[in-house]
Structures are given as C-alpha cells and as structure tokens.
Computed example of a mutant assay.
Amino acid sequence: MAVQPRVLQRDDLLRAAASAGFSTMTERKLEGFRSNGLMPRPVRVGNDGRRPVWVYPPGSDHQLVRLLRWRERTVDVDVLRVVLWVERFPLDLDAVRTSATIVMDDLSHALEQLLHTEASRQGLDPVDDQDAVVGAVAASMAAMRGKNALPRPIRVPASDRAAAVAHMLQIFALGTRPDVTEDEAETIEKVLGVSPGRRQRVEGAEPWLTGPASLLVDAADVVSLPRMTEALAEATDAEWEEARSVATLLFLQLPVVARAVAAQTGKENLAGLGVFAVLDSEPLFAVLLLAFAIGARRADWAGNVEDLTDSLMPWPSLIGELKQVLEMPQPVLDHNLAGHGPEMQARTARIIQALLDGDLDPGPSPDR
C-alpha cells in the first residue's frame, strides 16, 4: 500500500524551521517568501468547524528549511529563486529564467563598473586601454589578502599570479581570447588549483586533466560571462530542463565527491579536486553552473558533461551506505576495524568525522 504524504499546514512549516535552528521564523516571513515566489501558496481543502483549512504541497517544509539555510548566504531573491529551482523545488520556470538573467546582467554590470572605476583611477580609457585596465585590476586582486581574497591553493610567484589572474579575467569575465603560452596556461591552472589533476590519481583512475593547458583559452566560447548570458537568453524550455539536471549534479554532488576524496585520503586538494569542494557553499554558483550547462550543450561539450554527470549519479547512494556506519555500535565498529592496518583505521576515522560534520551532505554548511 502506498504511503500517503503527510498533510502540511502553516504550523508544520514553522515547526520544521524551528527544529532546523530557525526559531525566529514567523508567519509574516512565510508570507513574504510566498509573495516572492520562493515558497508555494497553500490550498484551501475544507473547514475545521468555521475555520478554513489550508494545506501546503508535500516537501514544502523541506523547501522552507533549505530556503532559510541559503538566506544565511544571500538575501538576493533572484539568486535564491534559481538555487531552489536547481535543488529541484517546484518554482515557475519563467520566473527562474527572469531571475537568472537579472543575476548575470548584474554580474556584467558590476564587472563593467569595476573596469571603469580602475580606468578612471589610472587615467586610462576602459575600451582602448582595456588590457592595461584589466592588468591593474588583476594585480590588485592577486595581491589581496584576507577574507575576500582569491584562494591560494598552490604557491605561485606574485608577478606570475597577477598575469594569470589578468588572463582569467580576459577569458572568463570578458570572453576574449588572449595570446597565452603553454607555460602561462599552466600557471593559470596552478592559480585555479587544478594543476594536480594532471598527475595525481584518485583510486587508480587516470588523471582527469589532459591535453594542452592552453586549450583553456577556448573556454571563452563557452563559460565566459558574455557567452553564458547569451546561452541563457536563447535557450528553450527543454534546454533549461536538461540543464537543470546537469546543474543539480554539478552544484550538489561534485562538491560532496571532492570532500569525500579529501576525507578518504587526508589530502584537501588531491588531483586538484579541492577547488570543487566549496561550490555548494555559494548560491551564486548555482546560477553560473546552470548557465554553464546550457552553454556547454550549445558548444558541443554535451558528451564531456554527460560523462562527468554519469560519474556523479551513484554518489548519493554511496554516501547513504557510508552513513550506515554511524548507526554501528562503537564496539562493533572497533571489532570490524581490528583486522585492518593503521591506514584503513585512519581513513575510516576521517570519513566518520566528515559524516558527523556534515561535510558529505550537499548544500550550505556553517563551516564552509
């Protein structure tokens, strides 16, 4: 016999929020979320005496908790709408389209303002002297320290780092194709943190990063801000739905895989996977990965993306199996590990700690 979904009313949603640590959640805030299209509206199903009974669709309690967790990272309604849609919650596609377009346009405008401000400061023309302006912005970004600084996963000389950041801005932000030597392209891979993917293996698999590093210049045709914005604007509803599935896996499962590999091996950036471990900590990445998924399909990268997503599909089940370890009594676990060496015991301890810390759960975490 099929199990009927539990009927959800307003108080059920508020209790779910409180249980998740959001004790300040109120009916008024819920109404605000409904008005913004971030939560579904309830449907009247009858009366309890004279009092009307309103119920929410199944899963609305989970949607509210996820929304509240993402709001700890951003209050941008457009970003929140897209990230919830990527997480497979039922939001209106037309509204998601509009929100994604707004987010990408805002990014383009912010970049334009940054370049104009730097050009004015340097006494340069933002168009005619674009390379010089980009170089100045890149030098500031490369030298920045502190919370908002670019990550430094691999040590690179300061001048090389600044040049690499300038090339990255030209390729990924402006969509241009600068002349980049193979050595310069390899430096970009180091700055990104993916260069170990050329030589290190995970569980005996071949290195995932192959081919000339200079080919990344071609990414300007697919994953640059202008190309991804165009792809979003031109995509059909069917392309949006297909891209949604890809973005969901890349946004929610690829980071889990990266963190699982780190927990298993004790190496945070084995094979250059560390760069992917934080994708699900920033909701803006959901928008960018959605745009990437659409753009990649239009640029005949569909086969490569499909191979990647196919490799990610088994991971939710694998993580579910790993979580069964947490249900074992400690004496049973100790007995099972007794016949194994120190390396296996240390690996198991790291995985258990990662499970307890929530590192192998997708989505935002206070520690990431």
Rank of each mutant, 00 (worst) to 15 (best):
M144I: 00
M144F: 00
M144G: 05
R145P: 01
R145T: 15
R145W: 09
G146E: 00
G146K: 07
G146M: 04
K147V: 14
A149S: 11
A149D: 02
A149T: 02
A149E: 02
L150G: 02
P151E: 04
P151S: 04
R152W: 09
P153M: 06
I154F: 01
I154K: 00
I154S: 03
I154A: 05
V156S: 02
P157A: 01
P157H: 10
P157M: 05
P157L: 06
P157D: 00
A158Y: 05
A158N: 02
S159W: 13
D160E: 15
D160L: 11
D160M: 06
R161F: 06
R161G: 05
R161W: 10
R161H: 14
A162P: 02
A162E: 07
A162H: 08
A162R: 09
A163V: 07
A163C: 12
A163G: 03
A163T: 01
A164T: 02
A164G: 09
A164R: 07
A164W: 08
A164P: 14
V165N: 02
V165K: 04
V165I: 14
A166D: 04
H167F: 15
H167P: 00
M168A: 05
M168N: 00
M168F: 07
L169S: 02
L169Y: 04
L169I: 15
Q170T: 07
Q170L: 13
Q170I: 14
I171T: 01
F172I: 07
F172Q: 00
F172G: 10
A173L: 15
A173H: 11
A173T: 05
L174Y: 14
L174S: 01
L174I: 13
L174W: 06
T176P: 01
T176A: 13
R177N: 03
R177V: 04
P178G: 11
P178I: 11
P178A: 09
P178S: 05
P178C: 07
D179G: 11
D179R: 15
D179I: 12
D179M: 13
V180G: 04
V180Y: 13
V180L: 15
V180R: 05
V180W: 02
V180P: 09
V180K: 02
T181F: 15
T181Q: 03
T181I: 10
E182L: 13
E182Y: 09
D183C: 14
D183Q: 14
E184Y: 14
E184R: 11
A185F: 10
